[in-house]
C-alpha cells in the first residue's frame, strides 16, 4: 500500500511540475497491449535442487497505461499475465506449469530528439511478481513439490520504439530483459522457482499496439 502511495505521489509530482508537456498533439496518456515472446530457458539451474527439464518458448501479455510527464519521459503502470510449461522433451510431457501475474511501474526515456510518446526509447522498471507453480499431471512429484506460490521483485530494462500509424494508433516493437539477482546456492525453493521464471525472461521480444487516449 505504501508502495502504491509512493508511486501515486511520484507521478502526481511530475504532472504538476511539468504542466507544459506537449505529448503527441496534446495527447499524453496512452494504453497499449504488448505480446512478449520469451526465450526458452535451458540448462542446469540449481546446484542445490538438481538439473531441470527444458522450458518451452512462451509468451506473456502486458497491458500498460503510460503518461507523458515530460518531453522525454513517460511514466507507466502495467500488468503482465503469462504462463509457461516445463517439458520433459524426452517424453514430450508437460511437467509443470507456472502462472505469473506482475504489476510493474516503469519509465520510458525517449532518445535523441524524439518527443514522447513518439520515437525510440529505453525503458526502466520495477516489477512486483506473484507466481504460482502447479503440476496438474503430477509429473513433477519426483522433484518434491506440487504447488507453490511466491512473490518477488524484478528490475526491467528495455529498448524500443513507438511508430505511429495515425494520430491515434501506434505499434511498438521492443527488446527487454528482466533481472532478478539471487545466489543459487542460498535460495529457497520458492526463490528457485522465481528464478526459473526469471531466467526465461532474460531476453524478451515484444510487439505491441497502443492507443493515444487523451
Amino acid at each position: 500500500m505504501r508502495t502504491l502511495l509512493f508511486i501515486t505521489l511520484f507521478i502526481s509530482s511530475f504532472l504538476i511540475a511539468n504542466s507544459q508537456v506537449p505529448g503527441y498533439l496534446g495527447k499524453r496518456l496512452s494504453v497499449s497491449v504488448t505480446e512478449l515472446l520469451g526465450s526458452p530457458a535451458w540448462g542446469e539451474f540449481s546446484p542445490k535442487y538438481g538439473s531441470e527439464p527444458y522450458v518451452n518458448f512462451h509468451n506473456f501479455t502486458r497491458i500498460a497505461g503510460e503518461y507523458a510527464v515530460g518531453n522525454k519521459t513517460m511514466l507507466g503502470l502495467s500488468c503482465c499475465l503469462g504462463s509457461m510449461g516445463f517439458y520433459d522433451y524426452n517424453n514430450d510431457y508437460p511437467m509443470a506449469k507456472l502462472n505469473a501475474t506482475a504489476i510493474e511501474v516503469h519509465t520510458k526515456l525517449f532518445l535523441g530528439d524524439h518527443i514522447a510518446p513518439l520515437g525510440k526509447y529505453i525503458s526502466l522498471g520495477l516489477a512486483f511478481q506473484r507466481m504460482k507453480e502447479t503440476d496438474p499431471l503430477n509429473y513433477s512429484i519426483n522433484y518434491g513439490f506440487k504447488e507453490y506460490t511466491t512473490n518477488f521483485f524484478t528490475f526491467h530494462f528495455g529498448f524500443g520504439a513507438n511508430f505511429f500509424i495515425n494520430d491515434f494508433l501506434y505499434f511498438t516493437p521492443s527488446l527487454e530483459t528482466n533481472l532478478h539477482f539471487q545466489d543459487p546456492d542460498q535460495e529457497t525453493l520458492d526463490e528457485y522457482i522465481a528464478r526459473r521464471w526469471q531466467v526465461s525472461s532474460y531476453a524478451l521480444f515484444g510487439i505491441g499496439v497502443g492507443v493515444l487516449v487523451f
Binding site: Q20, P22, Y24, L25, G26, N71, H114, I115, L118, G119, F164, D167
Partner: peptide, 13 residues
C-alpha cells in the same frame, strides 16, 4: 508524425 510532434511542441511552448 515527427513534424507534427515538434511543431505542436513549438506552438505549445
Amino acid at each position: 508524425f515527427e513534424l507534427k510532434s515538434h511543431l505542436y511542441a513549438y506552438f505549445l511552448n
